[in-house]
Design a protein around this nucleic acid. Structure first.
Lengths: 270, 270
DNA sequence: CCGAGAACTTCCACTGAATGGAAGCGCAGG
DNA sequence: CCTGCGCTTCCATTCAGTGGAAGTTCTCGG
């Protein structure tokens, strides 16, 4: 109702201009719900979103409203916002997620039933192993992994398998950076990693022991599509024991082969 | 390099202006990948996106590029676009999807193991049952349902359970519209549906038979959170048989109770 | 009960970012 | 070689988005 001009920009001050596009700002808002403060920041207030996205409050308000009206964010009674169901709906439509998961799930279930261990399905995405699926039973054991998590390639069973069958330039680039050591047994030396990769290609299975989480080991095997390319990896994560259980190895191999066959892979001329 | 003005808008012609905001246009692009032509249109060309989103090609080009740079869409070698992994990553972070799924999955696995039937987990979203999870084994039987699918409330086991415990105004509104009859046995008459809902509330389980898919029946039970509110439903879908298997009913009930307990529900004073 | 403060919502003049028609490019088929 | 189709780039125009500020609501403490 007032007639006063609102914009009163400070005269000589150098204002760091924000040259992000509208789209980039919208994305920044969603990214605010990502991993920043870690695990449990799944719900944010408007102000918190504005801070994380580094946007003025009024702009945030308007853009958040756009997200909410579309369903990408949802507003709760208490005024907090969280990621909306629409994102989930579209997310599960993502081709790789949808197809791989659908096809692999039954085999993962079988693997879980026969071994009763944590079962993982992961793909290579950028420099990480991206966890597509996880079956865990009622174990009290907490693992770092969860669906949607990203874990390093060199310290996880699935990661090492994915790396073993990745294009050489990917391996090259990955090993060019310094690899984080999580536990004393984590292999971080590039040449040592290369040796392991070669061994994995030879025997078709990766054996990890106490390299990411104390007390747990894993067995992982590659999943191939109809072109023979490795597109994913399955693993089971067990409590570390002295002996390697050949039956477990067999179970992991069978699961990987089952999924591969379902994807159209026909055993190559051995 | 030319100096000619590009914009040569037809003079007297009435141009239907598009008053969608940038955000709305961006969303329209994602929606183009949704359900429009049905199931398998998971990959589109630029032109196809422009058509479906009803946007000029150049605008589409620019906005699609924004999505791609963020990871919401990904561009394949052949020039086709599909939903990107980023959407999946954010999607699985969605609170309800994440929490419910994580908590429920082990119980769903148990249910699958004991019954060996299709297992479903769904929530009420708008006027539909939204399928959060589905375990299916290697059955050849094709079901309509899949993760992320939306199916009607009155013709599915989970749907009817969700409706039975929904707020009265939701029920009112749902029954106010005409309900689709899929098969001869689908109950579509509002009063008849209300009767079923009352029965479900009484016995705590929904029994459906040949109301959505010929030859299959389902048993569904409600999942409650710590406040006692019904937040989801589990079901098994079986081939229709003459007799009701009390053990199956028991298994479904147990699964629902298990999840409810895990969500913090303590059996109310009966 | 009132006042301070924090968080959210609305307002609106200004402007630069988004727009989209057209031209340019690249490729496949005739 | 030409034609047609689909994608990419260009850029003058303009209007949608912007964000500072004022208004509103809610909570907490005195």
């Amino acid at each position: 109702m007032s007639g006063k001009p609102a914009q009163t920009r400070a005269s000589g001050d150098e204002v760091a201009v924000d040259d992000r596009s509208v789209a980039a700002r919208l994305f920044a808002i969603l990214d605010a719900f990502g991993a920043p403060t870690g695990a449990t920041s799944l719900t944010l207030t408007l102000t918190a979103i504005a801070q994380r996205a580094n946007l003025p409050l009024s702009t945030t308000h308007r853009l958040v409203a756009e997200w909410v009206s579309w369903g990408g964010l949802s507003k709760h009674e208490n005024g907090q916002y969280s990621l909306g169901m629409k994102l989930w709906e579209l997310g599960v439509q993502t081709p790789t997620a949808r197809n791989l998961r659908t096809i692999a799930l039954p085999y993962l279930e079988d693997l879980y039933e026969t071994t009763r261990e944590h079962v993982h399905l992961a793909i290579l995405d950028g420099r990480d192993a991206l966890y597509l699926e996880k079956l865990s039973g009622h174990h009290v054991v907490r693992l770092i992994s969860r669906v949607g998590a990203r874990l390093p390639l060199h310290s996880t069973g699935v990661g090492l398998v994915l790396l073993a069958y990745a294009p050489t330039d990917v391996v090259q680039e990955y090993l060019a950076t310094s690899l984080q050591r999580f536990l004393p047994r984590t292999v971080t030396e590039p040449e040592a990693v290369r040796k392991r990769l070669a061994e994995i290609r030879l025997i078709g299975i990766a054996r990890m022991s106490e390299e990411m989480t104390a007390g747990s080991s894993s067995l992982a095997a590659p999943i191939r599509d109809r072109t023979g390319q490795v597109v994913a990896a399955v693993s089971i994560v067990t409590r570390t024991t002295d002996t390697v259980d050949p039956e477990q190895e067999q179970a992991v191999r069978l699961a990987a082969q089952g999924v591969s066959r379902a994807l159209g892979y026909r055993r190559a001329q051995q």
